[in-house]
């Protein structure tokens, strides 16, 4: 998905009137350029939609200083895949059950899309989705992260996410006692 533009090519790009292009070029914090379907970007990201509507898209690469190239590549990959996928009937008529509302279950390809990511890549992607106002991608990434937490003990969760235990023994004991009445096992 990465576009390496030489000077000549960049010049060429500039000549094309922005309105005629069906892609937008995004620039990561480390200066890499990525091209994404304009329609998908506008549909999936409120921030990009605002930039496109407001004319603040730069043909030479709109600066997204908060997003690194790996995360931006995933964002662009997701947008382009989304542009090509036909929403399944399940997604359109997703039954609003108590548990899932207001979230829609990820599609099969969306699951695969996040399943292949490392923990770090997933973290960066959820941050990027949040920054760009990508509700659907946030749904998919947060769903994946919650799946990683389900059924695990605090110790196991700290291990999975490499979180430091910043409690003293006394504090943990305090929490245990506060909640003791709600638990049979403690």
């Amino acid at each position: 998905m990465e576009v390496d533009k030489g000077k000549g090519e960049a010049e060429e790009t500039r000549k094309v009137a922005e309105a005629d292009r069906d892609t937008v070029t995004l620039k990561s914090s480390d200066g890499k350029l990525f091209e994404v379907s304009k329609e998908a970007a506008a549909r999936l990201s409120t921030v990009l939609a605002g930039m496109i509507a407001g004319g603040s898209i730069d043909d030479n690469g709109t600066d997204l200083k908060q997003i690194g190239s790996e995360a931006l590549e995933n964002v662009v990959d997701y947008c382009n895949k989304h542009a090509n996928s036909i929403p399944s009937a399940a997604l359109i008529s997703s039954s609003i059950s108590f548990n899932t509302a207001p979230f829609k279950e990820p599609e099969e390809w969306e699951r695969k899309f996040v399943d292949r990511l490392s923990h770090d890549a997933l973290f960066d992607l959820v941050e990027a989705a949040n920054f760009l106002g990508m509700e659907r991608l946030l749904d998919v990434t947060c769903h994946k992260i919650s799946e990683m937490m389900k059924g695990k003990s605090p110790d196991q969760i700290r291990e999975v996410f490499n979180i430091k235990n910043d409690y003293t023994k006394e504090e943990l004991e305090e929490i245990r006692q506060e909640l003791a009445w709600a638990f049979y096992d403690d």
Binding site: S118, H119, F123, N130, C142, H143, F161, N162
Partner: peptide
């Protein structure tokens, strides 16, 4: 999956993202 995390899942996540994750868990 290997737990080779360099990211700070405790304090590094925006608060609303952490909540969005919690929202998907059984209470």
């Amino acid at each position: 999956m290997a737990a080779s995390c360099a990211r700070d899942w405790a304090d590094g996540l925006p608060a609303d993202v952490l909540l969005a994750i919690f929202h998907r868990l059984d209470h």
